[in-house]
Every structure is written in structure tokens, then in C-alpha cells.
Nucleic acid binder design. Sequence first.
DNA 1: ATGGGGGCCTGCCGGC
DNA 2: TGCCGGCAGGCCCCCA
Length: 283
Amino acid sequence: MPELPEVETVRRGLLTAMEGKTIEKVAVNRPDLRWPFPPDMQARLQGRRILALRRRSKYILADLDSGESLLIHLGMSGRMRVSGAMLGDFVHAHPAPEKHDHVVFDMEGGARVTFNDARRFGAMDLLQTDAQESHWLLQSIGPEPLGNQFDGTYLADRLNNGASPIKTALLDQGIVAGLGNIYVCEVLFRAGINPKRKASNLSRSRISSLVPIIRDVLSEAIEAGGSSLRDHRQTDGKLGYFQHDFKVYGREGQPCATPDCAGTVTRFAQSGRSTFYCPQCQR
DNA sequence: ATGGGGGCCTGCCGGC
DNA sequence: TGCCGGCAGGCCCCCA
């Protein structure tokens, strides 16, 4: 379940169980996810304390006291669930293992964190914390959309030469980190921009207007605990609620949410992915 | 060179 | 009920 708001929601849900805690025991139940696990992963994790739990783009990074960081990617179907720790006012017991539980962390303090990923598009790797940005998966990722380096000037400059449609450009992780298919659709709807428009044909001011919209959509989604599609859940099993605020994604055939717009939400394929938009008010 | 499609996997849903 | 096609929130890689 993985765009930036969902990953951030997962990271926050793991803080109590993992940050500042020692990894007492790790079960690695298969040799790989999308790629092979790094050599001796279990030994390099066990007994290490997690100094900080961070997020970069759609990746979670656990900084260890060994100078390494554990990189975790949820792919399409990756989930993390926490059990056995104090969650609110009561203690959750460890539930029975489930199909596709690939890596299980038993933490100091009694929490168990289980990584489950049916499709195995997810990934785990170990990297040197001080060389994070040169890791092959992170080295060409663009600025964080909620950070200071992401502004109208940057985005307009980056999209200036783009021959690709704005939808494709915003999905490009090298331009801005963390946006995926859902939130790009929602952002373009709010901006009133047709997803087919060539990025380079949009005025600088229209491109600049995307920046606060991107920040708002992502912030609101994080605030709502992410989106729960296909039964995705937070680490404590609760559902996020932002899917109820989708205006176009998954709403093919429904009337456009824009006041006084008579349009109908339409779906079409764009570079192999579904795009939802209103042809009437997105220009 | 970059934009688009294929591929990686499993699960689920709708239609016949 | 069962089988089949289509679809799914990501992202690397190859090809034109």
C-alpha cells in the first residue's frame, strides 16, 4: 500500500515499537523479496539498536547502532503489523502467523513487527547510513514534496523540457519523490489540469500552482492515516480514511465533484496505468 | 534520449 | 461452483 502518505503512516505506527529499541530476534522466512536480501541480513540486524526510524520517498529507513541502515520498501502489497506491545490502553497478543509473513522482528519491550507482502514487489536492503543517498535505489530520487527544496521554481525548471504528459512527469520519482498513481490523479484534479497535457506546454505559473496542491493533498492524506484500498491497514490494524476524500481515483462514471461541473469522471490508460479525471473541468 | 510497454507476483472480482 | 481475464497503490529494464 504504498504512496508517501501510507508509508509515512506506517513509519509513525512503528515508532513506539521500534525507535530506540534493540532488535532482539529476527526471523527471515525466505531469501528474497523483489531482490535477494543482503548477505547475512539476520546477523546484521539481530542485537542492533534502532537509533531512528526515518522515511525517504516511499522508503522506510531504520538507522542502526552499527552504522548501517535497514531500507524497507512496501512495493504494492507490503504491510507491517505490530503486535504484543502497548497500543493505546491495552496489550495486543501475538496473533497467529499469516501467509506471506516474510520477515518478523521481535523487539526489546515485547513488540513484534511483521512484514507481510503477498506480491513480493517490496524490498529490504542494508546500506551505510552516511552513504544513504548513493544507494542505487535512492540516488536518483528527487526532492521530498513536503520539504523546502521543492518549490515552484524547481518544478517549473524540471518540467520545462519534458516531452511527457504531466501525469507521467509527476509519477517520475526523479522529479518529485513519493507521488503515486492515486495522488497524482487527485492533485491534477484539484489543479484543474488535464493529465494528458504535455508538461512543457504548461505555463510556469500553472506548474507553480501544483506545489501547494501537492503539499496539501499529501498532508491531508497523512492526517487521515493514509488510504485503505484493497483492505490495506495501518500497523495497528486500523483503516486510514483518505480514500473517502478521493475525488476522481476509482470514481469512473460518477459525476464530477467540482461545483456546477456537469462532467463525468473518466478512466483511460496512460503509460500502462489507469488515469482518472474529469474531461470537462481539467484542461 | 526518453517514453512506453513488459515483467515481476499474488489475490480478488466480475462475467460467463 | 469454477475458470478466465482483467485489474491492482511500484519500479526496474529493455526496446523503439
